[in-house]
């Protein structure tokens, strides 16, 4: 674990960039330099940044498929269970054989959507490690602008390629400003 002369644990070396375009170009350089444990921070999602960082598609969609299928099966159990076994209901002599299953489709659809939406929301939080009330990046006073108009890039000290001078040189070369060490605590 790297420490500063004052004894703080080092989380990362970070830089601020003047624009989304500058951050996008810098991300491509950091990706090509072979770093793995790094991240960029912006007030809004930047189009194409996933490719620029070398990240693939988010497989959150798998959880949503799982949620949707669970919802569909739940609806099938909730409808067929009572209607076929627990409480066979004869309404005005209307048919209630298996071929009336079409009347079950609306609720199957609704629960598919409901469970899929829950899966999307909770897997978004889960895959992002949220809610998380504390993060070392918040120790940097300039970082408050990340939710306003600031664009930041941080390379973590845990990355095997991390060397203080090498990373500083890379951030400078890509146009980073206010380059600093971010403390862990």
């Amino acid at each position: 674990m790297m420490r500063t002369p004052a004894g703080h644990k080092v989380y990362a070396m970070a830089a601020e960039y003047p624009s989304a375009a500058a951050l996008y170009q810098a991300a491509k350089h950091v990706r090509d330099a072979g770093f793995k444990r790094w991240d960029v921070f912006s007030p809004f999602p930047i189009h194409g940044m996933d490719e620029a960082m070398g990240l693939g598609k988010s497989w959150l969609s798998g959880w949503v498929l799982f949620g949707g299928v669970t919802g569909l099966l739940t609806a099938a159990v909730v409808e067929f269970g009572p209607s076929s076994i627990l409480y066979k209901l004869d309404v005005h002599g209307k048919p209630w054989n298996f071929w009336t299953v079409r009347a079950f489709f609306p609720i199957m659809f609704e629960l598919t959507v409901l469970f899929g939406a829950f899966a999307a929301f909770f897997s978004m939080l889960g895959m992002n490690g949220l809610p998380r009330w504390y993060h070392p990046m918040f120790n940097w006073e300039r970082f408050v602008r990340v939710s306003n108009d600031g664009f930041f890039l941080a390379i973590e000290a845990r990355d095997p390629r991390f060397t203080e001078n090498g990373v500083r040189e890379l951030l400078e070369r890509t146009g980073g400003e206010h380059i600093t060490i971010v403390h862990e605590d």
Binding site: S42, P45, I46, M49, L60, A117, S123, L130
Partner: peptide, 23 residues
């Protein structure tokens, strides 16, 4: 929820948003 605008978060966030829109 401790949101910090990280692009690794935006990646999942945008997918969740797209799928919520699709649903």
């Amino acid at each position: 929820c401790g949101w910090r605008g990280s692009n690794r978060n935006w990646r999942h966030y945008e997918m969740a948003y797209l799928l919520l829109a699709g649903l």
